[in-house]
Amino acid sequence: MALVVNEQQLNDIESVLQNDIIDLGVSCVVLIDMAGNILASRDNGSKKHDIYSLAALAAGNFGAVSAMAKIIGEDEFSLLFHKGKSENIHFSKIMTEFLLVTIFSNEVSLGFLRLKVAEAVSRITEIFSANGSP
């Protein structure tokens, strides 16, 4: 079995990633599934990251954090975020199968980013639902 997303959906998703996330000043955003596959990505051209490794690690990390949440009796942690000296990374789940990974510098405030990511997540959810698939 394969996950199929049609071209229109991918175009729509990419424009959400570009307009709602990258245009904020974010350096890189990647939409992945929980198996670690990349569905779409966008960056501002400033740095080239190894997004395939990033996707595999993000999916694994998200799985591990969710499993920890269950052990301590939580459904899920609401904020998944790693802070570095200049770069930060934020994870947001989309429905049950997808994850939006955002890499951004300190020039973007976390609060603003979370707001924009939440908007993008609901747009992407709509795009996925529109066609009845996946």
Binding site: L3, V4, V5
Partner: peptide
């Protein structure tokens, strides 16, 4: 679950 990208004509398979 493999991912088929009709736009970039790329298939990702997990082994």
């Amino acid at each position: 679950m493999a991912f088929v990208n009709p736009k970039t004509r790329e298939v990702q398979i997990k082994i």
